[in-house]
Nucleic acid binder design. Structure first.
Lengths: 129, 129
DNA sequence: ATACACCGTGGACTATGGTCAACGGTCAAA
DNA sequence: TTTGACCGTTGACCATAGTCCACGGTGTAT
């Protein structure tokens, strides 16, 4: 695939694809043509970009995304290291889920109590006396 | 409270407190002194800053944090609008939780299968042929 | 009174994650 | 062969979320 195609398939801009490539987040990118220097992006990069977008949406930086991808893909990483890395990521994710559930409960409580009145104690904490 | 005290109580820097204030994320901030122009930050700002930090951790921008706080605090907002806003936030949060659970399952699967071998199809998708 | 810790302001600087414009090269259809 | 759509590279630019610095003022203990 050329950059325009992968951009179109993943919903990001050409510039973004090139940025991810520059930052080392993509897999196979080659220049197989004799008469130009167009790049060819491997199919796996579609999945990578979609995964990056998903990870970003939940608050990971590109650097962290790279860490996850590299850990999952790198055959040279020993299984002990990878296991620990993945366990760490799982507990990160668990903490985020807990945070979100807390916020969800908070918001739900806002709906359950009458939304027109702010007598709730959590709301009160956000307000001045 | 003065800026140093609230910074210390919330674990952010003085500059960060001032930034949040400038961006309109804080509540009562006054200059009650005659002989200086020191600011006094209301107690509710401790809670606000902690809440902002929590919201940021799960991927909200300061602008979004402001939206949430304003919606919860603003008495002038009619209950219909606030209800819709909160419902929207809840569904945002639900989607994020789903994303995280997907990632969690993915990572767990990595652990469950032998971490030393990358025969898994999701890993394969991240790799070149 | 002098030292030191605090305060507010402004502006510069940083990193992150992009976007955009300009340059020139390439390809394919008309 | 010329037009238009694509390509790569560079460098400027943008918003976000801060941090840091210099400035001068203030408060307090010694």
């Amino acid at each position: 695939m050329k950059v325009g195609q992968i951009a179109e398939k993943t919903g990001v801009s050409r510039d973004t694809v090139r940025l991810y490539e520059k930052l080392g987040l993509l897999g196979k990118v080659e220049r197989p043509y004799e008469y130009n220097n167009y790049k060819e992006y491997g199919e796996e990069n579609i999945y990578r970009i979609k995964m990056i977008k998903e990870m970003q949406r939940i608050g990971l930086t590109l650097k962290e995304c790279k860490g996850v991808i590299v850990a999952l893909v790198n055959d040279e990483m020993d299984s002990e290291t990878r296991l620990n890395f993945i366990k760490g990521k799982i507990s990160d994710v668990e903490m985020k889920i807990k945070s979100l559930q807390g916020i969800q409960a908070f918001l739900q409580e806002r709906i359950d109590t009458d939304c027109a009145f702010n007598s709730d104690s959590m709301i009160a904490k956000l307000k001045a006396n």
